[in-house]
């Protein structure tokens, strides 16, 4: 059984070599494979390459486990530090053209899954302790619902009230900062999110009207 394990490790090391060129040698060192002939594609055609009696050497972990939460926190902090540094620099004078690249085609049936409707903002307030989020209460025909949107840098709650907006109505509910958000307001935004504008309808339409 132990032999089978070592032999499997040898074969895996050979098979992953094209993708991970450095790891195989580290594995061979630990499982005691020295002969180059045991590191080839040919050599994995037969099971039983590891030489019985070869000496194993426990080495350091091939890939140390990473503490996910800690690591993500660290990366986020680095990103913010980098962003803060960037803000100090003057904005580039020469604006590049907006690059539009079309994504893969979708079929009409795919589009039909999406339910877009006109909604009217009845109430709106800031989400506490979140400087980007607004919580809006919307009227959609004879129903009401709450939607959280990351638009607080562009709209005040007062401005929002009374607006006719476009709502993605059948998006699965998501909890954002503890508030369940039932849908999403459609906006246009530029690449770095420095400009943003809500979608609305050209002439006055009743809330609840479907868009398609």
């Amino acid at each position: 059984m132990l032999y089978v394990l070592l032999e499997c490790a040898r074969i895996v090391a050979v098979l992953i070599a094209p993708t991970m060129p450095r790891t195989p040698e580290r594995i061979f060192a630990q499982i005691g494979v020295q002969d180059d002939a045991l590191k080839t594609w040919e050599s994995v055609k037969t099971f039983g390459g590891v030489v019985p009696g070869s000496k194993v050497h426990k080495g350091e972990a091939l890939f140390p486990r990473i503490d996910v939460a800690k690591e993500l926190e660290l990366l986020e902090a680095e990103k913010q530090a980098a962003a803060a540094k960037k803000e100090e620099l003057p904005a580039p004078a020469d604006e590049e053209k907006t690059v539009f690249t079309q994504r893969d085609l979708c079929q009409f049936e795919d589009f039909e899954k999406i339910q877009l409707v006109v909604a009217k903002v009845l109430k709106c307030e800031k989400v506490p302790k979140a400087d980007k989020l607004l919580m809006s209460t919307l009227k959609v025909g004879d129903t009401e619902r709450v939607v959280v949107s990351g638009i607080a840098k562009f709209y005040t709650p007062e401005e929002m009230v009374g607006k006719k907006v476009v709502l993605l109505a059948n998006l699965a509910p998501r909890k954002i900062r503890g508030i369940e958000s039932h849908g999403m307001l459609l906006c246009a935004a530029n690449a770095d999110d420095s400009k943003l504008s809500l979608l609305t309808v050209d002439s006055d339409m009743e809330d609840g009207c479907e868009i398609g």
């Binding site: 194993v56 972990a61 091939l62």
Partner: peptide, 9 residues
């Protein structure tokens, strides 16, 4: 991968 190698060894 890591455990296969380290535990076997």
């Amino acid at each position: 991968l890591g455990n296969l190698v380290s535990r076997s060894v």
